[in-house]
Computed example of a mutant assay.
Amino acid sequence: MLNVLSGFMVVVIIIALGYLVGRRGLLGPNAVYALNMFVFYLATPALLINFLRDADLATVFGDNLAVVVISTLTAGLVGFLGYRFLARRPVSDSLVTMLACSYCNGSNLGVPIATHVLDDPAASLPVIIFQVALYGPATVLLLDVTTRRARTDSPGNGSLVPLIRELILGIVRNPLILAATVGIILSLLHTNTGWKLPEMLTEPISLLAAGTVPAALVAFGLSMAEVTVLDRDTSSRRSVWMASLMKTVGHPLIAYAAARLVFDASGPALLAFVVVAALPTAQNVFTYSQRFGVNTVLARDSAVVSTMLSIPSIAVITLLLG
């Protein structure tokens, strides 16, 4: 437990340093974007390849993926039904709330936390793959259909073919999906033939991978210094808090129940399942909402508030399960 808690405190310290640097503006106005792009396109893919090339794929994609699917869909359904029938909001708004309650920040924050706190960078890989390859695209299609219907009062107008093509291209071009595919292939080659990458390639991959955690956490701290949320005039504060609590408290509780009752998980595996579920709402949710002009304030504010709540949430989880 002490190792887990010390690892978590290191994460908090680096985030705090990033926040302080951001408040002083020491890295300039575009530092968040530059660091996030380095993490997304170079460091995280290298980290995934570096880990997966020697990993046990059955462990990575076994119970972990099942818990991700069960907990994500359940948390999302609770958020959708609550917003749709209790707040009496349109289907499109409720779909964005569904994502705010269940769509994890599995890459920018999930990978560094999984790496440093859980000592397992692939712990967040199943949630990344599920969200990027299935959950996100399916919800985007639903958002397109519902917003198109609201605009035209006719469900049959327009074609979904360009959107579907764009979603498919987005998946196959995603550097995390590509890196995971490369890592899986290398793992299969190593398992079946004994072949390994030459050191000339593994060395630069390892060096890039080592930059994932510090760069991602500093960028995260920088971003927290730049946002203003819960505006009294524009933000539905109650809905934001409910969605954020669902993401950082409800979602991990659902993951815990699924892991314990369905898969009889315990120890480090159970800790990993629950910590991944406690990750905050991803920025992708704001991107999707902005694209369709639906519930954008809730999506933006939930990402920030859930991020702040995720720190004590994950700390409590590590205390109880570590």
Rank of each mutant, 00 (worst) to 15 (best):
L279N: 05
R89G: 12
L35Y: 09
F51G: 10
I14D: 08
R300H: 11
V145P: 01
L309V: 11
P155H: 09
V262N: 00
V96I: 15
R151L: 12
L42D: 05
R165H: 07
V294T: 15
N36R: 15
D233M: 13
F130G: 10
R238W: 08
Y19T: 10
P175C: 12
L160F: 09
L57S: 06
M98E: 02
N3K: 14
G25F: 08
V117Q: 03
P29K: 10
A216W: 03
S266T: 00
A180W: 02
V140H: 01
L253N: 11
T44L: 13
A31C: 11
G293M: 05
L207S: 10
A255P: 03
G183M: 09
S306R: 06
V249N: 01
Y33P: 00
L86G: 06
S102H: 00
A269Y: 00
I49D: 04
A58F: 06
Y33E: 15
A282F: 02
R23T: 10
N36P: 02
F292E: 07
P45S: 12
M37W: 08
Y256A: 15
D120W: 04
I168C: 08
H251F: 13
A282S: 12
M98R: 02
G293N: 08
S310N: 06
P137V: 15
S124M: 01
I254E: 10
L163S: 13
A55K: 08
T212K: 02
R232T: 15
S159R: 11
L201K: 05
S223I: 03
N192G: 07
I205S: 02
A259G: 14
H251D: 11
Y103L: 13
N64G: 07
V67K: 01
P252D: 11
T281M: 12
L319K: 08
G62H: 00
D120A: 13
Y103V: 10
E199P: 01
H190P: 00
I171K: 06
T181H: 08
L65D: 09
A75M: 11
S313W: 04
A265M: 00
A75L: 05
